[in-house]
Simulated assay, not measured.
Amino acid sequence: MSVPLLAIAAWSGTGKTTLLQQLIPLLKARGIRPGLIKHTHHQMEIDQPGKDSYLLRKAGAEQVIVASDQRWALMCETQNQPVDLMMLAARMDTSRLDMVLVEGFRHEPVAKIALWRRGIKDDVAGLLDEHVIALASDEALTLDIPVLDINQPSIIADFIQQWLSEHS
């Protein structure tokens, strides 16, 4: 992996996707080209039933690439194996990226910005490990790491830009 990984980790319902939707354009405006890996606990089907790629995958193809002039996607059957973040990151074309943002994977040993809102779930301590480089919250907390305002995505983007300049 030749580009840094930075995870956005939080309890479900905290706003990881919402924050990333705001951060990605801000990072791109700063000249940073982010990729993204998103973890989901839900059953997902990105292919459409009845389409050729779906039919061929269901027929037993272990991997299927669907490609057009606009985009391509690789679908791999995993037979309910645990998801491996580093294997996924290795599949990305990092020659076109400056960093890979990761949504979820809060137990992985990668740099993370943890998100915490009071009342969502548990105490903030449940999110903090040695890989958390900052906390974005709607609460003013005193910690040994930077605490960023979760409602100010531009401040978080500034922090990411500074972190990236130190880690790339």
Results as ranks from 00 to 15, higher is better:
M1R: 12
P4C: 10
L6R: 03
A9C: 12
A10L: 09
G13P: 03
K16S: 02
K16N: 04
L20M: 15
I24T: 02
P25L: 06
L26E: 09
K28H: 01
A29V: 02
G31S: 01
G31N: 01
I32S: 00
I32M: 01
R33V: 06
G35I: 08
L36Q: 00
K38P: 00
H39S: 08
T40C: 06
H42W: 11
M44Y: 15
M44R: 11
M44G: 12
I46T: 11
D47Q: 04
D47F: 03
P49S: 06
P49F: 15
P49T: 07
R57H: 00
A59D: 05
A59W: 04
G60R: 13
G60E: 06
E62L: 13
Q63E: 11
A67Q: 04
S68C: 03
S68H: 03
D69H: 07
D69M: 03
D69C: 02
Q70I: 03
Q70R: 04
Q70H: 07
W72E: 00
A73H: 04
A73R: 06
L74N: 02
M75A: 08
C76A: 13
C76H: 08
E77A: 14
E77P: 00
Q79R: 13
Q81R: 14
M86H: 09
L88C: 12
A90C: 03
A90W: 00
A90V: 01
T94R: 06
R96W: 06
L97Q: 03
D98S: 06
V100L: 13
L101F: 10
F105V: 09
H107E: 10
E108I: 02
E108A: 14
P109T: 13
V110A: 11
K112W: 07
L115I: 14
W116E: 07
W116H: 15
R118M: 10
G119V: 12
I120H: 05
I120P: 01
K121V: 12
D122Q: 14
D122L: 14
V124C: 11
A125Q: 11
A125T: 09
V132W: 09
A134W: 07
A136M: 09
D138I: 08
D138C: 14
E139D: 13
L141S: 11
T142L: 10
T142P: 00
L143C: 11
D144G: 13
I145C: 10
V147M: 10
L148W: 05
Q152A: 15
Q152H: 15
S154M: 07
I155K: 13
I155A: 13
A157G: 05
F159Y: 15
F159E: 04
I160C: 01
Q161G: 03
Q162D: 02
L164Y: 00
L164K: 01
L164G: 01
L164P: 00
E166V: 12
E166D: 08
H167V: 09
H167T: 08
H167Q: 13
S168G: 06
S168M: 07
S168L: 08
